[in-house]
């Protein structure tokens, strides 16, 4: 059997690898920080833009029924809540402290992925349900002046798209996401076990 000392001798024979110049790393680090700030800015901008648009619709069009305003309010709530969840996920991932003990990093990671799994399943489902309720409320008044044929056509398109989005696109994506996150959690747990052994 090869002695460990022999292996160490082999290890020491390695030649220096050509690595990126330090200035490249500094430039990348600075760029990385800017990109992150831009991402956060984009998330907040989306939120800040959608809300005034909904407010503008609600205030300029003189809706007669309170259900329409409830619909608009629910839409605003959905967008706000989901954007905040996404934003908090982004910040949490960024804030994982890599200078601490590895066991604590693994623990933080496990919590992050567990929450991500809740987001991609339960929170996404709640978002889908509330958003559809919001549209139902909104459609009550908006569809009133339409002919029965047009109503049926719009509803057919809307329901068709929602069913396709939820049962085909969404399920497919969700399963993929669920499997990936579960794989991550399992890998982290396995590593936590390795540390404990």
């Amino acid at each position: 059997m090869k002695e460990f000392n022999n292996l160490q001798e082999i290890w020491k024979q390695q030649q220096q690898t050509t690595l990126p110049d330090v200035s490249q790393i500094i430039t990348k680090a600075k760029k990385d920080r800017t990109q992150y700030s831009n991402k956060v800015f984009f998330q907040i901008a989306t939120l800040v833009l959608v809300l005034p648009v909904l407010f503008w619709v609600g205030s300029t069009i003189n809706f007669k029924m309170s259900t329409t305003y409830i619909g608009l309010l629910l839409m605003a709530l959905c967008v706000t809540a989901f954007s905040l969840v996404r934003l908090s996920q982004m910040i949490t991932l960024r804030k994982i402290d890599l200078t601490q003990k590895p066991s604590l990093t693994l623990n933080q990671l496990e919590k992050y992925y567990a929450f991500q799994q809740i987001v991609s399943t339960k929170i996404s489902l709640a978002y889908f349900i509330v958003l559809n309720i919001a549209f139902v409320f909104y459609f009550i008044e908006v569809m009133q002046p339409m002919s029965t044929g047009l109503k049926a056509f719009v509803l057919f398109l809307y329901v068709g798209w929602m069913l396709f989005a939820y049962f085909y696109l969404g399920k497919k994506q969700k399963q993929k996401e669920y499997d990936r996150i579960q794989e991550m959690i399992d890998a982290i747990k396995q590593m936590e076990d390795q540390y404990e052994k």
Binding site: K101, P102, L109
Partner: peptide
């Protein structure tokens, strides 16, 4: 020690990319 700890954690975190 500080640097190697960052390295170990970065390696462990790398699994997120699968």
């Amino acid at each position: 020690t500080w640097l190697y700890r960052i390295t170990v954690n970065t390696c462990l975190l790398y699994i997120r990319n699968a």
